[in-house]
Every structure is written in C-alpha cells, then in structure tokens.
Amino acid sequence: MDAVNGRGIYYSYDADCGGEPVLQNIAVLIRKGEFTAVLGANGSGKTTLARHFNALNHLQKGQLTVNELDVGDTSRHWDLRRHVGMVFQNPENQFVSLIVEEDLAFGLKNYETPEREIPQRIKKALASVSMDGYERHSLHRLSGGQKQRIALAAVLALEPDIVIFDEATSMLDPKGRSEVMGQMKKLHCEGKTIILITHDIEEAVEAENVILMNRGNILACGTPHEVLTDRALLEQAEILPPLAVQLYYDLKERGVCLAHCPLKKDELVEELCQLN
C-alpha cells in the first residue's frame, strides 16, 4: 500500500493574484513503512509539499492520496489528520497548555477519545518518547530536546500511521537533535511511515529514501547513495554534499581513489582502512 501517492501537484501562496508557484507539477510516491527524507535548501518547497500530506495546505491542482484518503476531499481532512501526525520546527509553538498532560490530552479530546482512555494513552505516548512520569511537569521548564519529544508524544497519542517531522531538529542543540533522530528511527522500526523534511544533508543520510527538491521541483528521488553522492545534482539543489562524500571527491582529486563513495563517517573509515 502507498502511504502517499500524488501527481501534478501545483501550489501558489498568492494563487488569487497570479503569484509565483511554490510547487510545480510534483509527482511523489512514498510507500507504507518507509523512512523518506525530503531534502532541499530554504525555499525549495519541501515544507509546502509536506503540508499537503495532512491537508494543512489545500490542494489547488493535481491529485493526492494519503493513507488511501483523497486529500482533495475537504470533508475527509479531519479524518486524515488523525492518521498523519506532524511535528513542527519550534516546539514552543505547538503547545496549547502549560502542563504536559493537558497538552497531550488536547488532540485526544479533539478526536472524542473517551475520557477514561485518555490517561492511558498519555502514559503510553510519554513512554514511547522515554518521558515517563512527566505528566504534571511544566512545559516551559523543559529543555529544547525534551519539548520536542513532548510535541512528538502529543502526535503519537493519536496513534498516527504516518509521522512528518518538519525541520523538527533545526532549533535543537546536538544532544536534542540526536534524541529526536533516535525517536524517528525507533518509530520507523515499529512500522510507522516517517517523512523527514530537512535542509540538513547529514540527517537525510539516515533515511531509506531521499526526495531532492529545488525551486518547487523534484530533482531526484532514490536511495541516499543514489542521490547524495551525485555532486552535480547536489550543486543544482544548492546543497553541500555530506562530509564523507566531499572527502571522497577531494581525495580522488589528489589521486587517492576509494573503492566506493561513502556516505557516513564509519563508511569512510572502512574505505580508508581498506586502502592499506
């Protein structure tokens, strides 16, 4: 089953005034259970595209189904959003209350979850992000990484099939970032479809599938090795290659040829050791 299947997607923020399109004739396919990174520089249209998946942006042109629901049908938007959770960039701008459990209960009450089930769902969601026992904590006293994990818990409380992380690590320190990336991998192992929206290529390297965007178009789609080792393609997308890839090409220019182009640090170390 496809988690996301769309074609001919077009979007402009100023459609009424004939404004510039932000998305142009986009075709996208994401299978159920995949970990996909949508990578692009600022202004490439990746967030605009992601917000179509839970109908926060209304479909102007094209066809799109998410979790087998037609996104063009506005009457299904509320249903759709239960199955497609989204964690945003700034955790502070996602909270509706000062206390953790009240914030997590918000989404559950919106979907008319029976009152007696709510405490259990909150407990389970907090456990899944390793924040057990934080129910009565004040949100504004938590660290950035903890806040983002609570924001994720608020999404997971609704038990979505698809979780979109919209630049969810960009405001975090390295520790916070590592915590959230760890959560993503854990959710992926549990069978959820993960869509990571990012401009950080080192994060995209962790995904199974990469969609590379630039100026409202999809430049390439494939595995990280296929997409992120192509220097010319990345240059067109206005993104620097991963450090390991840069080193591969720099070494090659100086006459040191590695057998394969590595993507990550440990792959690079492996290739360098094999030179001896």
């Binding site: 917000r51 839970n54 926060l56 509320w78 959003r81 239960r82 959770g85 989204m86 945003f88 700034n90 701008n93 996602q94 909270f95 509706v96 918000f106 989404g107 919106n110 979907y111 608020a154 999404v155 609704l158």
Partner: peptide, 12 residues
C-alpha cells in the same frame, strides 16, 4: 504556527 499545529491535531 500554533494555529497550524492545532489544526494538525484535529482542532475544529
């Protein structure tokens, strides 16, 4: 941003 996040969590 919060309005978007609330809509994403099913607020109507």
């Amino acid at each position: 941003e919060l309005a978007l996040a609330m809509e994403a969590r099913g607020y109507r």
